[in-house]
Design a protein around this nucleic acid. Structure first.
Lengths: 191, 191
DNA sequence: CAAACACAGATGACGTATCAACTATTTCCT
DNA sequence: AGGAAATAGTTGATACGTCATCTGTGTTTG
């Protein structure tokens, strides 16, 4: 059981490429967004998730679900955004434990101003650089990898999760909405 | 100049997929690595970059170059690793400004222990889930996107960079080594 | 119904990443 | 030679992410 299957050249090229693409792409998108808009990338994601719903209100756990963030990340980030006036927290009438995160006018203005530039960046560095065949290939690859990750997560739940000690998590289970469409503000006009 | 080209369904599917894959994959790989090895993902990358060279010594700026990190990130991270005994800093005889980052025995032991598990994770979630055609497609996609990012970076240098104020950076220019092979410790046995 | 449990969320500690200075050398250029 | 500029690296401030822990509230179930 000691020997390892290292990657061959073809495999290594793909893996290196994915890593390089990820790191550089994220860095560039974040930098451009910040440069043009006073919003960080996480800010942007939260605001998009909020504006994906007509009332601009969302429970924190729903937000975590939408974004694949764990609850503590949501809480910390929302706090930072509250302090900058992009969102507020509201009481939840039904559930005394809960709250709502609500987008403010300032938040709406910020996302409306930032979205076009962000979509342009995504096009410039990714979408417009790929052929339709490559776009579809990318979708297929993502689906395969995400499926692998979710299978593993499910196994892990079976072995450990539902036994002792509740482990409040998000991001694991199936998408609560019908399709797998995450928030993005890249394919809809703003509300 | 006011209207925005939002993403159509095919484009949005690819973009959403890429985002989901990136976030979940990184989180899972980092978590598994940390769980099995006392190394964070950045630690792992630094140690691989060091062991990619026979003497296990590397100038910080070279490290930044290898990894696509900016100098301050290298400096901060190396400091943390020094404090945990994974690497040390050495004086550089040629250049009085410079130094060397040197892997310690403890660092070597850690990377040797961690590498097989990490490669297994990469196989489990990515490589073994994709067909050879998908691997090649992924490589092609990465190359296209990275090329776009580097073109933009080059333009930016032209417009702003080489004018006023030195902006010491890494990650921009061409790969200093012959091929584009970044460090990885996924396709070589350890030294 | 009460004890056990699950859930929503906040918080503190810590590691990580970026930016903007800042110091100390080297290199370049005339 | 000598000053300007580029380079190597550090540092401090701040934002971001995760983990473990804690509180309070709902939900189950004996």
């Amino acid at each position: 059981m000691g020997d390892v299957r290292w990657l061959d050249e073809r495999e290594a090229a793909a893996w290196r490429g994915l890593q390089a693409m990820q790191m550089q792409l994220n860095a560039t998108l974040a930098r451009e967004l910040a440069g043009e808009s006073d919003l960080s990338y996480p800010d942007y994601m939260v605001l998009v998730a909020l504006t994906d719903h007509p009332d601009g209100r969302r429970r924190p756990f729903e937000l975590g679900h939408d974004l694949g963030w764990e609850k503590s990340r949501v809480s910390h980030h929302v706090s930072r955004m509250v302090s900058r006036g992009l969102v507020t927290r509201d009481k939840c009438p039904n559930d005394q434990r809960g709250s709502f995160v609500v987008i403010t006018d300032k938040g709406r203005a910020a996302i409306t101003a930032a979205a076009p530039g962000h979509v342009a960046s995504v096009r410039r560095y990714v979408i417009d650089r790929l052929t339709p065949a490559q776009l579809d290939a990318l979708t297929g690859i993502s689906v395969a990898v995400v499926a692998a990750l979710e299978e593993a997560e499910a196994e892990h739940e079976d072995r450990v999760g539902r036994a002792a000690g509740a482990r409040g998590n998000a991001s694991a289970g199936a998408d609560p909405r019908g399709n797998g469409a995450g928030p993005d503000r890249t394919n809809r006009s703003e509300r």
